[in-house]
Amino acid sequence: MHFLELLVELLLMPILAFVIGLAMVLMMRRIGARIQRRVGPPVLQPIYDIIKLYSKDTQISHGLMHEIGIIMAVGGYIAAETLLPVPGLDGLADKGGAVTLAYMLMIPALGMALGVGQCANPNGSIGISRALTAMLAYDIPFILVIFGASYVYGTTNLAEMISIQQQQGVSSWGIVQMPLLALTALLILPAIMGKHPFEIYVAPAEIATGPMVEMSGKFMGGLFVMQCFQLYTAGVIFTTLFLGGGVYWITFLPKIFLVVAIPMSVAYLFPRYRTEDVLRLMWKWPMLLGLIGLAVVMK
């Protein structure tokens, strides 16, 4: 039937995600610079960085798993993007749904963790330990959000969630239906994206950027690509769950950029949290909000 069409969609979705992700990285760095009253990087800086990293003459590898780890990290995101419906492109949204997506997103993290492990650098392992702990911290409220949304829309299919919100107008948007859960999601968004103030796992001065300590050249480049996907995914998921998704790119893009911009703008104002403080914070306020939100939603 529309097999060819689907194939094109599947190809297009990761590419779009990457391009938009690049722009988001730029935006993030610009926001950071502006907050610090700097000029910030030029427009094409993310591309420069990636090209430079891929074109390094020395690509230091610590073994096969180090390489496979990076492949898993990038490949996993490429695959995950096809589960994420965007205007005009539903991809495989009906084959998996929100729960599948949430677990698919752990594949890149796992790949990266394995790759870092192979490097035999304790700084990397410490970073992974902290990153996994942080994941434990934010995933618990995140799962409340996923559950709440699935409950409200009566489905875990993201494409259906979008169509429900689109058909019934703004009043049916997630943010109106379940404002507390939206707030929860917003609170944990910087942690999901691994950004300030929850980036203890990179802690450059302390554990030499943690997981990235042995990453050079294209390995680092792969992680830069992954970061683009990461920001994009976070933005799109939030938009899909709470902001009605989008039928047109023209309305969709501002939403996802806004979603990413909000935590970024706030985040740079805070100092880093320690690991146990991340846990304590995440398990206190977002969790509380999430539970109340759920109670409200489920009556």
Binding site: A33, R38, V39, G40, D49, V213, E214
Partner: peptide, 22 residues
């Protein structure tokens, strides 16, 4: 690096491990 001269506008960033540095 900071607001006065801002190296980042030239694409220069500090890194902490030799693996990432140019």
């Amino acid at each position: 690096m900071t607001s006065r001269f801002d190296m980042e506008r030239l694409g220069i960033q500090p890194m902490v491990t030799p693996r990432q540095a140019d």
